[in-house]
Amino acid sequence: YHCKTPDCKGWCFFEDDVNEFTCPVCFHVNCLLCKAIHEQMNC
């Protein structure tokens, strides 16, 4: 999964039971359910 922050090169592999990941490059939290960044909110 590629981080949705513009111009960020961060990415990860994820498993089905994970709903979000913190990008190791820009540190934004990406929602894997809706494929967006909406920190401090539920999907």
Rank of each mutant, 00 (worst) to 15 (best):
Y1M: 13
Y1G: 06
Y1C: 04
Y1K: 06
H2T: 09
H2Y: 15
H2G: 03
H2R: 13
H2I: 07
H2A: 06
C3E: 00
C3H: 00
C3P: 00
K4A: 13
K4M: 15
K4C: 08
K4R: 13
K4N: 10
K4S: 10
T5Q: 13
T5E: 08
T5G: 06
P6S: 07
P6M: 07
P6A: 10
P6Y: 04
P6L: 05
D7A: 10
D7M: 08
C8P: 02
C8Q: 02
C8T: 00
C8A: 02
C8V: 00
K9A: 13
K9E: 14
K9Q: 12
K9H: 07
K9S: 14
G10P: 02
G10Y: 05
W11C: 11
W11S: 15
W11Q: 14
C12R: 08
F13T: 11
F13L: 12
F13G: 06
E15Q: 10
E15A: 11
E15S: 07
E15G: 08
E15M: 08
E15R: 11
E15N: 06
E15V: 07
D16Y: 08
D17W: 10
D17E: 14
V18C: 12
V18N: 07
V18D: 08
V18S: 11
V18T: 12
V18F: 07
V18G: 06
V18M: 10
V18I: 15
V18W: 04
N19P: 06
N19W: 09
E20F: 10
E20S: 08
E20I: 04
E20Q: 08
F21P: 02
F21T: 13
F21I: 12
F21Y: 11
T22V: 07
T22G: 02
T22P: 05
T22A: 06
T22L: 09
C23W: 02
C23P: 00
C23D: 03
C23L: 00
P24R: 05
P24C: 02
P24H: 02
P24D: 05
P24Q: 10
P24K: 06
P24G: 05
V25H: 11
V25W: 05
V25T: 05
V25C: 09
V25S: 07
C26G: 02
C26S: 01
C26Q: 02
F27Y: 09
F27T: 11
F27L: 12
F27C: 11
F27I: 03
F27V: 03
H28L: 05
H28S: 12
H28A: 14
H28Q: 14
V29S: 07
V29D: 05
V29W: 06
V29F: 03
V29I: 04
V29R: 10
V29H: 04
N30G: 01
N30D: 01
N30A: 00
N30V: 00
N30Y: 03
N30Q: 01
N30L: 00
N30R: 01
C31N: 03
C31H: 04
C31A: 01
C31R: 03
C31W: 02
L32H: 02
L32M: 07
L32N: 10
L33E: 11
L33W: 07
L33P: 14
L33Y: 11
C34S: 04
C34F: 02
C34E: 06
C34R: 02
C34I: 00
C34H: 04
C34Y: 01
C34Q: 04
C34T: 03
K35D: 09
K35T: 06
K35A: 09
K35Y: 07
K35V: 05
A36T: 13
A36K: 11
A36I: 06
A36M: 07
I37L: 08
I37P: 10
H38A: 02
H38C: 01
H38M: 00
H38S: 03
E39W: 07
E39V: 09
E39S: 11
E39A: 11
E39D: 13
E39K: 12
Q40D: 14
Q40T: 14
Q40C: 10
M41Y: 09
M41H: 14
M41W: 12
N42D: 13
N42L: 08
N42V: 10
N42R: 12
N42A: 15
C43G: 06
C43H: 07
C43L: 04
C43P: 08
C43I: 04
C43S: 06
C43R: 06
